[in-house]
Design a protein around this nucleic acid. Sequence first.
DNA 1: GCGTATCGCGTTTTT
DNA 2: CGCGATACGC
Length: 729
Amino acid sequence: MENNPLQTTLDSPSVSVNLEELNPAQRQAVTTTEGSLLVIAGAGSGKTRTLVYRVAHLLEQGVAPDKILLLTFTRKASQEMLWRAGNLLNDSCGRVTGGTFHGISNMLLRRYGHYLGFGSTFTIIDRGDAEGIINLLKGSLGLTGRDKQFPTKRVLINILSGSVNKSMAIDDLIYEQYAHLSEHVDDIINLDKHYREFKLNNGLMDYDDLLVNWKRLLAEVPEAQRDIAARYSHIMVDEYQDTNLIQADIVRLLAHGHNNVMVVGDDSQSIYSFRGADFYNIMRFPKVFPDTTIIKLEENYRSSQPILSLTNDIIRNATEKYTKTLFTKIEGDLKPRLFAGRDEREEALFVNRKIAELQNEGVELTNIAVLFRSGFHSYKLELELNSSGVEFEKRGGLKLTESAHMKDVIAFLRLQVNVRDSLSWNRILLQLNKVGPKTAAKITDRVTMADDPLSALAEYPPGKTWKEGMAKLVQLFYDMEKESAPGVLYELIMAYYQPLFEQIYRDDFPKRQKDLDQLKSIISGYEDVQSFVDDTTLDPPDTVEDHGKQTDRMILSTIHSSKGLEWDAVFVMGLAEGRFPHMAAGIGEQMEEERRLLYVAATRARKYLFLTYPRQLMTPDRQFKRVGMSPFLSELRAGLFQRIETRDGQRSSGFDFSASPSRTVPAYPRKKKKQKLSVKDLPQGTRVTHPFFGEGTVKKSGQGRSVDVAFERHGIKTLHLDYAKLSLC
DNA sequence: GCGTATCGCGTTTTT
DNA sequence: CGCGATACGC
């Protein structure tokens, strides 16, 4: 158990906690050590601090460290918490356990899974895998094409559990939203059945399965129950508003017999209902645990009063909540600013300019963040930042291990762990030239059904065109069979995969190569393949462009990925109709969640808060459409923010493109194609410039439409002329 | 005719 | 990136 990387442990302390440093509400939360405790903690109210102090206080009271279990949602959160506790505590006297729900669940299932009838060889699949399976099954059920609206797995589960879970208000909406699918009810039920079977047959487990099985261990297996629940006397859960019904049940079962549970959460920051989180869990908590002490932390230690007044107003109209009004003693009189750009580009230019101004005022780049609803809303800004040389890190959106080339490599390692993982077989076979979906599926079927999958692969009669590739693949597996060290396996895989890789991603493989190099250093840090594979699914590393100098860069992030963090200056961009709230958000609970999302975004700011939106957006048919500001903004009381006007005044009507000579965004559809460079325009030695890489010299040209260019600052790149935005100097 | 390769286009949010 | 439509090849 101690070696599991999903569990963070802390060697700790003989403690001395100075309770004077806390406010009365925090102190009450820290010193209430027996019975159930619900802490409603507003944004920036010192929630983590309170949790950490409580751990320390419990230890001071003589609770053994290994009796305390701290559950969080992200591994970073539990690590930070224990790290902070470590700073507070001194001598070593034992270990406090902290981890994520999913990580601990995985660990327990590897250990106790046999009680539930499955071995320890299962593979955890991520969202992409799950959707892939669903699509595959849709195909086999003849459901492809026509209906893009067909429910994803999450919706499906909600529909199916609708009769069971009346508490989920969202269900009604889903029924309405998918009413047109009523004729497909049988198909949907079939799909769900097939999905379960597929996972079972292939030893796959999705995020929900992990939790469901943990709950089963606690509820159905006395031996496991004794080992797990009896092990801890104090349970603490952070971000309780993000728990789903199963997690709430797990907490209840873990606390069975002592009810020493402390949960901390903020109903106003519940933004994860789409993945099953049910913030009614917070409302229900006092009923599940009678005699719960409820404490509210209402003093904010993060933001200045003008920012807080605005955020209080955002949440003012929320329909259902534990009422709390945050106040702060932090001084400051800078009102949040609101800016409307003519279009996305002007919005980006504004943000870019303000960032420069903030830097001049002495705000460090690391203390600035730009937040937005969806990953692609920042594209324009990224271009601007790149051209003005501002270093940034983008969070949210695709994770490193979710990109196709990463999945390619990881698939080999997954097979090492679970030889019946047909998702991985399929992916690997598809890499072979002249092998497509049909052929790959046939081989995968044969191989995963066989007693000895490897020989089955070797014996499969290959087609003429891909015979050679298949032989190499078989050889690779025989070589891998003899190895177990992750580093060595990686080398074997890359020796096989590299040529295929360069062929498959011929347009941009040099960029992807960097990721693979990074993967190499991640892999070599692991003792065994199993924990590497588990970790990359449960806690995927973020994409890092170049991990040389990680200091002094700003953050671009989706609001979801920004939760729990804070910066001196925060920009929230894209606050326009149709963008925020997201178009698909209906009325009712979905709209409420969008409102809370804005609340989360705005409460990240300490001193400076900028809200921006474009006045026109590109519609799907490439027309410009004028849009107003987000309804959440128009709701706000006047005087809580200050408007910044466009430099050339408020041009509120008409499309006056002539007034913007410097715009490079085409006003009309790109049908009139920008004249493309061809290879013969770029003989060796030509000077060129690229928006990302800067200036460089052509080194080699003539292979199809690719050229090799040596850039001064970024080395040699192979660029595809249809793809790269190259221009002559 | 079946299966594979290629191109163009629109993207929610994620443990 | 992944999907659908279209083009190409056995």
